[in-house]
């Protein structure tokens, strides 16, 4: 049963990949795009498919996987089903730092933007965790309120930076707040890769620990988890994932919330089983969401965050109503 579900998941990702490459837009028909992939067809079609659609696909996979992994890990770490990088203001913190980096850094140093976004995301994570921790652990209410506060502070910072930023830098800074995969390029994907791969490995290494942490810190420590060490690593990994995603694709909400829950319906609660599946499912969702964002109101391209919000908001409301 699990094997069939795993195969379905991989098939879904492959379908998303094929759709993203072949149905990307009117500039190349599916037949032309297919020919271009097999090294045929006119050069301008090849440029569109291999130079634009392929990096955009790769960025979508990396960002979707990153956000889903971060969401699944934070939900377990905070013992809270409502944890999500976007709702908790972690993406917002990363975006504020990335916007500041875009506005302030010289063009040659823009490679540092992901590092800045990661630092901002880490700061926001720490802040939310500190505010949400009450005498009885983290409660949903405290955590959502802490996220509201951090998000408000982050958007105030972003708006301030945008009003002060020199105009040539505005588009890059603005894109961070929109949430879009439009700026994809091979170099962006190469920059992002370590921000996804290294934290993903750290989280998979601590999958079993995360399952124990989901039952509370005392309970996890009693079962042999080095709580302080694991908590620090998971926080940093989640911050790196969110920071990387924000730096190259901006703030995209709800993927981190919805994907792990969808996977729980099929694979159950254990983070050890959940994390790798959530990564694949997040990638598939993001790629499909981006395709919808590109094609729904073509030739106008919606930010992909709009599509993920359309999917995520009703889901969030349902979860909130159900949570104790």
């Amino acid at each position: 049963m699990t094997r069939a579900a795993d195969l379905t998941l991989v098939a879904a990702l492959l379908v998303a990949v094929a759709a993203s490459l072949l149905l990307g837009g009117p500039a190349a028909t599916p037949r032309e795009a297919l020919a271009a992939l097999w090294s045929g067809g006119p050069p301008e079609v090849r440029t569109i498919v291999l130079g634009l659609r392929l990096p955009r696909l790769a960025l979508g996979i990396a960002v979707g996987a990153a956000l889903a992994l971060a969401g699944a890990a934070l939900q377990a770490l905070l013992s809270n089903p409502l944890a999500d990088p976007f709702l908790l203001g972690i993406s917002g913190g990363g975006a504020a730092a990335a916007t500041a980096a875009y506005a302030a850094l010289p063009a040659a140093a823009l490679g540092l933007v992901p590092a800045a976004a990661m630092a901002g995301a880490a700061a926001a994570t720490g802040l939310v965790w500190w505010m949400a921790r009450g005498p009885l652990g983290t409660s949903s209410t405290r955590m959502i309120l802490a996220g509201v506060a951090v998000n408000a502070a982050a958007s105030a910072a972003i708006l301030t930076i945008l009003s002060l930023a020199p105009s040539p830098r505005l588009p890059g800074a603005l894109a961070v707040t929109m949430g879009s995969l439009a700026s994809a390029s091979p170099s962006a994907v190469a920059w992002l890769a370590p921000y996804v791969l290294v934290p993903a490995f750290v989280l998979l290494l601590h999958g079993r620990d995360l399952g124990l942490l989901a039952t509370g810190e005392e309970s996890a420590a009693a079962l042999g988890v080095e709580v302080a060490t694991v908590r620090r690593r998971v926080f940093l990994a989640a911050a790196a994932l969110c920071g990387g995603a924000v730096a190259f694709a901006g703030v995209i909400g709800f993927v981190g919330l919805v994907t792990p829950h969808l996977c729980r319906f099929v694979w159950g609660q254990s983070p050890r089983r959940l994390l790798p599946r959530a990564a694949v499912a997040g990638a598939a969702l993001m790629v499909l969401g981006d395709l919808v964002a590109r094609r729904l109101l073509a030739p106008v391209e919606l930010p992909v965050g709009v599509v993920t919000a359309l999917l995520g908001v009703p889901f969030f409301v349902a979860l909130l109503r159900r949570s104790p």
Binding site: A76, R208, L212, T215, A222, L223, R264, Q269, S270, S323
Partner: peptide, 28 residues
């Protein structure tokens, strides 16, 4: 160690919860 309180925010099954007790023998 049987703590006073355990967080059951995620609906694990009885079997999965008891299985957690084997974690100290299993590693990563």
């Amino acid at each position: 160690f049987v703590p006073q309180m355990v967080n059951f925010a995620f609906p694990l099954t009885v079997g999965e919860t008891v299985q957690q007790g084997r974690a100290p023998h299993l590693g990563a």
